[in-house]
Each structure stands twice: as C-alpha cells, then as structure tokens.
C-alpha cells in the first residue's frame, strides 16, 4: 500500500494545484500577475538553492550561472520553434508543448553544467564550492558575451511571452514537492548526515561526494527551470540578468528564511520579492542592504527566520498524520 500512497502524495499537489492556479489566473491584474510570477521564480530559486546550501551544508553562490544556462537553452528552443505549427494541433497547445520541452531541456543543460562544476569542487570542503561557483557565474557571463550564437552582450530578444501565473506556480509546486520528497528519502537523510558531520557520515558508509554532487545537480536543474521561466516573462535574455547580484539575492533569501527549511526559504523569497517591488525607488541601496542583512543575520541569528523547521511543524498534529522521525 505504500507505493500508491507515495505516488499520490507526489501527484496530488499538481492535480489540485493546476485548476486552482488557472482559476486564480483569471482574476489577476497584469501588474499582480507579473509580480507573482517573479515571486514564484524566486521561490523556485530559493528552494532549489536550499537543497545544496541548507540540506547538504555546502555553500554555492553561483545559482544565477545555472539559471543562465537553463534560460539560454529554453530561449533558443522557443525562438527556433517560433513559426512552427503542426497540423491538427491547436496553436495554444503546440506553444505549450514547445515551452514545456524548452523548460525541460533547460533543466537538463543546467544539470549538466552543475555536474561539470560540482564534480571537481565537491570532493573538497564547502568553501571551495563557494569560490568555484562564484567563478563559474563570471565565466558563464564571459562565454555568453563572446558567443555570437547566444547574441553576445545584447542577448536574445523577441522571445514569446509564455510564462503565465499558472506556469510559474506549477514550477513552484514541482520544486517544493521535489524538496519535500527528497528530504523524506534515503538521499535526503544522507544529505542531512553530511551537513551535520561529514566525517561521521562517511564513516557510516555514506558516499559523501556522490550525494553532494547529486544534490548539486538537482539544485542546478531547478535553477535552470527558474531561468527558463524568467526569460519568458521579461521576453529578453541577456547576460546582465544573470550576474552574481542575482546569485547573492537568492543566497540572502535562503539565509533569511533559514538554511534547511523549505517553507522558510519560500516565505523569505516571496516576502523579499514583494518588499523589493515596493522599494523600487531605492534600488541602488539594495545590494548594500542585502550584504548588511547577511552580516547582521550571521552575527545575531544565524538560523534565519525558520531555522531548519518547517511551517507544518507548528500545525496541530492531526490524527491521521504520522509523526515524522525525530531529528528530521
């Protein structure tokens, strides 16, 4: 009976979420739709970065680099398929299929980039990853700016606007379900063990490097998804969108929400996006505020808002909910 239950728990959010999102989509004004899509993209970024920085206890600060890989892949595919209309298929469905394919392709290429970056740097301790990902972020930018195929510094423009509220938040659901399912699995337990004590985990037979690389690849894939969604909202794909300012923004969200808490990073990402929307006039102080926030948080409350707890830990325990094992 376990397998169908698990499958149901993984699929149910999508089945319930899609009609709800589509219903909500109709009642949103253009402004709120675009704000909420941005918020959704940031939630995807924060939750996926949390898999590496929170669950595994490594520290990546180049999430925007993987975003760029996914975004350019997806953008190239939707641009190539722009005039494509198969007979017998309604155009909206064909567009949707192409977009889904583009997003998935973006996830695959971002995951490959993650493998390339993670393999050498994750064999060592966490701080190497930080500097390698920061470097990777810059290198991706240099490569894009030197490649005519990717439009050099001006980037790719004229992308179709495909990201709707429902698309973005289905991505959020996928990311959150991934993170939840991962945390409850053997893989997730291995990641937590690595975070708590790498030497002990290795002594208990956990393949530390293998699990770290897997976590990093999964996280990069979802960064690629976020990139694909973002460029089909702003209809423009330039290297300037994916500088390390973006990476640090995501790091701040994760740290503020609490390293290791899915709901924490989601809430922080959502809240920060809305706050930034309200503070558009003081854009130039944004990075200074972020860095001060990081330092002050580390000095006074390094656990962030939620620590490693989840929102549902505070819910009253329902009779049919099994108590999760202690120490999760």
């Amino acid at each position: 009976m376990r397998a169908p239950g698990l499958a149901l728990r993984s699929l149910l959010p999508f089945l319930l979420g899609l009609p709800a999102l589509l219903a909500l989509q109709g009642s949103l004004s253009d402004f709120w739709a675009s704000v909420l899509i941005t918020a959704g993209v940031n939630v995807i970024l924060a939750v996926s970065l949390n898999v590496v920085n929170g669950f595994t206890g490594q520290f990546s600060i180049g999430h925007a680099g993987f975003m760029a890989v996914g975004a350019y892949t997806a953008a190239k595919i939707t641009l190539a398929a722009a005039g494509w209309a198969p007979a017998g298929l309604p155009p909206r469905l064909a567009d949707g299929a192409v977009f889904l394919l583009a997003l998935l392709a973006g996830m695959v290429t971002a995951a490959l980039a993650g493998l390339l970056v993670g393999m050498p740097s994750l064999r060592l301790r966490g701080d190497y990853l930080a500097i390698v990902t920061l470097g990777f972020n810059e290198i991706i930018r240099v490569i894009i700016e030197n490649t005519a195929f990717l439009g050099r510094a001006t980037g790719l423009s004229g992308l179709p606007r495909r990201t709707t509220f429902a698309w973005a938040w289905m991505g959020v659901i996928a990311t959150v379900v991934m993170a939840r399912r991962l945390l409850g699995s053997t893989h997730g337990r291995a990641l937590l063990a690595i975070r708590e004590d790498e030497v002990a985990a290795e002594a208990m037979g956990v393949d530390t490097t293998g699990y770290k690389v897997k976590a990093f690849v999964v996280s990069s894939a979802f960064a690629g998804l976020a990139g694909g969604l973002l460029v089909h909202l702003i209809q423009l794909c330039t290297p300037r969108t994916f500088t390390f300012v973006k990476s640090i923004e995501v790091v701040v969200m994760v740290v503020l929400g609490g390293l290791g808490s899915v709901t924490g990073s989601a809430v922080a990402a959502f809240g920060l996006t809305l706050a930034l929307e309200g503070l558009r006039e003081v854009q130039e102080y944004r990075m200074v505020a972020y860095s001060l926030l990081l330092i002050v948080l580390m000095l006074t409350r390094p656990t962030g808002l939620f620590g490693t707890r989840e929102a549902w830990d505070w819910l009253p325990r329902l009779p049919w909910r099994r108590r999760p094992e202690e120490g999760a």
């Binding site: 520290f59 930080a130 640090i248 790091v251 860095s291 330092i295 580390m298 390094p302």
Partner: peptide, 15 residues
Amino acid sequence: PRLTALITAIGVSFL
C-alpha cells in the same frame, strides 16, 4: 560553524 563565517565573509565583500 565554519559556514557562518563564510557567509559573513561574503557579506563583507559585497558590502
């Protein structure tokens, strides 16, 4: 934990 100091270092750099 070392991670805390690393995050602070990143913060100082961006500040």
